[in-house]
């Protein structure tokens, strides 16, 4: 042991320096607003695809059957492209600052959640045309599970992982709030909107809300970053 390092190195100060430096690096690596902006753009772009890709068959008694083919065809590719884009921008921005980026686990989570959502929707698309629809509405947990397996909730799950990677408390709170909005806030019937709205509009409304929330989140994180700098 040399005499120069230990006696002058107050352990509290050294640990404090370590934490400060680690926090500064994490702040410099973050590009949260870009992730939210890309996901908001993908959400908004998906609305017309869902609208025009939805097959709706209404009977004279007023009941309707629908199949959201647009969601099935659009979202898997859109999510994969979105996560690849986010990873690209994270790595590029970090390297420009002289840092590496820890974004691979986020991209992998995004890919896995996309595969899970796609598998669930393909299974539903194969199952329901050949089996009678249940007479009773889905129980509460069933509705929540159904929403969790939709692309909008998968975005929230991936955001939770990103918050963990970045140790970003603000993003963690945002992702939790967003997930609560997607899973719990909408009424537990088929779609949003006042009575008489058509089915397509009822499905478009929550997507608009999700997109707006992501966009506002992107603006908020961008503003916070600007202030920080």
């Amino acid at each position: 042991m040399t005499t120069e390092s230990v006696p002058t190195g107050d352990p509290r100060r050294l640990l404090s320096d370590v934490r400060t430096l680690a926090h500064r690096v994490r702040l410099d690596q973050r590009l949260t607003w870009v992730a939210l902006l890309v996901l908001a753009a993908v959400t908004f772009a998906g609305i017309p695809v869902d609208w025009f890709g939805m097959r709706v068959h209404c009977r004279p008694d007023g009941s309707c059957e629908f199949a959201r083919r647009g969601v099935l065809y659009y979202w898997p590719a859109a999510l994969l492209i979105a996560y690849a884009t986010i990873a690209f921008f994270y790595v590029r921005a970090a390297r420009a600052r002289g840092l590496g980026a820890r974004v691979l686990p986020y991209a992998i989570t995004g890919a896995v959640t996309t595969v899970v959502f796609t598998a669930a929707w393909v299974a539903a698309a194969l199952y329901f045309p050949r089996h009678p629809l249940p007479d009773q509405p889905l129980p509460y947990w069933g509705v929540v599970l159904d929403r969790l397996l939709a692309p909008w909730a998968m975005i929230g799950v991936a955001l939770l992982v990103l918050a963990r990677l970045e140790r970003n408390v603000a993003l963690l709170l945002f992702a939790a709030g967003y997930l609560a909005l997607v899973l719990l806030v909408p009424p537990m019937n088929v779609a949003w909107g006042p009575p008489g709205w058509n089915l397509r509009a009822g499905f478009a409304l929550p997507q608009i809300v999700n997109g707006v929330v992501l966009l506002l989140g992107a603006a908020g994180f961008a503003l916070a970053r600007r202030r920080h700098r």
């Binding site: 320096d17 370590v18 430096l21 680690a22 690096v25 002289g98 840092l99 980026a101």
Partner: peptide, 14 residues
Amino acid sequence: LGILTIAHEARQVE
């Protein structure tokens, strides 16, 4: 210690 801390957080640092 600072160099190691930054390199640990950043994976790679310039």
